[in-house]
Simulated assay, not measured.
Amino acid sequence: MIELRSDTFTVADEKMRRAMAQAQVGDDVYNEDPTVNNLQKIAGEFFGKESAIFVPSGTMGNLLAVLTACQRGDEIIAEYNSHIFQYEVAGVSALAGVQINPIKGIDGKIPIDYLNGAIRDENIHFPTTRMICLENTHNMSGGKVLEVEYINAVAGIAKKNNIHLHIDGARIFNAAVAQGIDPKKLLENVDSVMVCLSKGLGAPMGSLLVGTEEFINSARKYRKMLGGGMRQWGHAAAAALIALEDGPKRLHEDHENCKALAEALKEKKWTEDVQQSTNICRFFVPDNNQADNFQEYMLKNGVRVQKAGNSFRMVTHFNVSQEDTKKVVELINNF
C-alpha cells in the first residue's frame, strides 16, 4: 500500500530501531535521561537557540509555547487556516485561556498591513496581543514556504510591539530545504519554534520546542502539568537524534516526488486549484461522483489519499519511493 494521506505515517527504519533498543535512559522528569539531554542540547545548538525541550507531539509543543508566553485572557494572532487555529482542538482557549485572532492570509502569509492592524491598542475593552504564530511550511496552502524575508519582517513588527513570535515549524526543514538555507537562518529573529520529528524526518514520535533557557525552563513545568513527563523517554529520543541528523538530507526527494504528482494532476480536466510547493499537494475535484470514484479507484489500486468533501491531499515522505510516485502518476493519468 502506498500511503499518501500524511507524512505522519512514516515508519522507523532499522537504524532507528537499533538505536531505540540500545539507548541509555534515565528519568527525564528528573532531567536524568542522558539521551534526551543530548537531543535537547544538540537541538538548541542546531537551531541557534539557548535551549530545547523534547515533547510527545507538535500540538503539545505549540500549546506549551502559548502557556509560557501568554497569560489567561491574552490574545495571539495566527493565520486563519493555520494548524494551531483549525486542528488543535481549541486547546489554546480551553487549556491556556487564550483566544486566537485568526487573520485570512495569502499562501499562509498574513499580509503585513493586516498584521499591523490586528495588534490591539491599549484599551480596557481589549485583550493584550501577546504572541504572533506563523506556520512554516503552511499545510493548508499546499506546503507553501514562508520566506526568511517575510519572517524577518514579522519579527520586526513583533519586536517593536513587545510581542512573542512563535513558529509552528512542524515542517520547518521542508521550508529550509526548499529555500536552500540553514534552518538557523529562518529562525534567527524568532523567539520560539516547535519542530516535529515524526513527519518527514521519520521518527516514530516526538517534537521539540526551542527557545531561550528561561522560556524552556518555564515550558518544562507546563509540560509536566499537561502530562508530558515521559520518564524513560530516551528510547524515543534515540530515534529523534537520527531523524534530526539524517532526515533533512533527503527531503528534496520528497519535494521532487510531490511535484511530479502535482504536474500530473494539473493536466487533468477534472481537477481544480492544484497547490504544491514542498511535500504536500492539495487539489479539488468539483464533481461529487468523480471525487468519490477517484478515492475508491486509488484505494483499489493500492494508494491511500486524504479526502475531505471534494478536497484532496497527497503527502510524500521517505516511505514513498520514486517508483511509488511513478505508479501514482500512471494511475492519475489513467483515471
Rank of each mutant, 00 (worst) to 15 (best):
T316A: 12
E323S: 05
F46G: 00
V89W: 03
T316M: 05
K185Y: 07
A21E: 15
A94Q: 04
A264E: 06
G117M: 15
P102M: 00
L299Y: 12
L95I: 07
F335L: 13
F284E: 12
K184L: 14
S82Y: 02
E149G: 09
A153N: 14
N301G: 08
L241N: 05
I151S: 03
D191G: 03
L4F: 08
K269N: 08
V148F: 00
K41A: 12
N334Q: 15
A96E: 02
F47V: 10
A65M: 11
E188T: 09
F294L: 15
P56E: 13
M194S: 07
P183Q: 02
G61T: 09
I100V: 07
L197A: 12
K300V: 00
F215N: 12
V315T: 15
L201W: 01
I172L: 13
C258H: 01
D113H: 14
A158K: 11
I84S: 00
A90G: 09
I106H: 07
Q290G: 01
R17P: 14
N38G: 05
E253R: 13
Q99Y: 05
E267T: 14
E253H: 13
V66S: 07
V29I: 14
T212H: 10
T129R: 03
V92Q: 00
I76D: 01
P111W: 13
V190T: 15
S82I: 02
T212Q: 09
L265I: 04
E188D: 13
M20E: 13
C196T: 15
K266Y: 00
W270V: 09
E14H: 11
A19L: 15
L226Y: 12
A23E: 13
M16G: 01
I157Q: 06
C258K: 02
N136Q: 11
G142V: 08
F284V: 14
I2Q: 06
D107P: 03
I216V: 15
L331V: 10
